[in-house]
């Protein structure tokens, strides 16, 4: 260790530089991962203290309890299946909205408040600040969703037996995956724009596109052109909300028309859904991490 790495303190202590700490810990990569973790934990605390997590837990708790509790008492495969479809159909509206709301000010909000400047002054790349911010918000969002949906899950299992636990967990997992994909989209939007109001507008437009317009566009294309199955599959994979429908339909095959028929016509397996959701997370976060170094 050189003199430059150590510096005497007024109280007689010795400062060990972070570079030295890195070598003691093993590698610089481990140090970077630790710092990303610290940013994520800080972000999680900030988001949970603004009551987003609690609000989402309450919203999805009431939502799942209402559907499971009020959806009749008939027991059987059909009833359980229709419950899952109902949960999924409503989740398609609520989950993107919740995720976009949690993420739209992830970057532009701190930039406006001046807290981003304080983070950029730290010895960590700006891309790592972005990734840590995403991870912290993802943890807060997922926690709220899981806690909320768990309430409905408990009632579901009480009414229909332990056999529904597995599919309900799969539904919950798919819901969280879709939420994280929409969160990634909103964090990317938050990096692109320069004002919080624009980020909110962008998030609303994204919600309208993915929840309403994309499916109309896809259906119109299918009816007009009758493209090959691969194109239909791609159209579904290009909308994270539809991936949630695919995950639920895989549990409870149902008939029907419209988007359900389009989804049923695709060959998307759960593994492909998982890969597509991962891509929906990695691509926007990667783009945002690249952009943040250039914008700020």
């Amino acid at each position: 260790m050189t003199d430059a790495d150590r510096s005497a303190e007024p109280d007689g202590g010795v400062t060990v530089s972070a570079a030295e700490t890195a070598s003691q810990d093993g590698t610089g990569r481990a140090l970077l991962a630790s710092r990303v973790g610290a940013i994520a934990w800080r972000e999680f605390r900030v988001v949970t203290r603004t009551r987003w997590t609690g609000g989402i837990a309450v919203l999805f708790g009431l939502f799942s309890l209402a559907i499971v509790g009020l959806a009749g008492s008939q027991v059987g495969t059909t009833r359980v299946g229709s419950l899952f479809v109902t949960l999924a159909e409503l989740s398609v509206y609520l989950v993107p909205m919740a995720a976009l709301a949690v993420g739209y000010d992830a970057v532009v909000g701190p930039a406006e408040r001046g807290t981003l400047d304080a983070l950029f002054a730290l010895p960590v790349p700006r891309s790592a600040v972005l990734v840590g911010t995403y991870l912290g918000r993802a943890l807060a969002l997922a926690s709220g969703l899981v806690v909320g949906l768990a309430a409905g899950g408990v009632l579901f299992a009480a009414k229909h037996g332990p056999g529904v636990v597995g599919p309900y967990l799969q539904y919950t997992l798919a819901t969280v995956g879709v939420a994280l994909a929409f969160l990634a989209v909103s964090v990317c939007l938050s990096t692109v724009v320069s004002e919080k109001a624009r980020a909110l507008g962008g998030a609303l437009l994204a919600w309208v596109w993915f929840v309403f317009v994309h499916d109309l566009f896809a259906l119109g294309l299918v009816v007009a052109v009758q493209p090959p199955a691969a194109v239909s599959t791609l159209l579904v994979a290009l909308n994270p909300a539809d991936l949630l429908r695919v995950a639920v339909l895989a549990m409870v095959p149902t008939g029907g028309g419209g988007v359900g028929a389009l989804i049923a016509s695709t060959s998307l397996s759960l593994a492909v859904v998982a890969v597509a959701l991962c891509a929906w997370i990695v691509a926007p976060v990667g783009l945002a991490a690249w952009l943040i170094g250039r914008r700020y």
Binding site: R35, R42, D117, A121, V124
Partner: peptide, 29 residues
Amino acid sequence: RVGYLPEQANFEPSLTAREVLRFHARMRG
């Protein structure tokens, strides 16, 4: 090795001063 205080530096209002410092200390190794 540099302590940099940007002009617009601010801190999350929901955190306490000690929490802010704990975070910065961890980030600075």
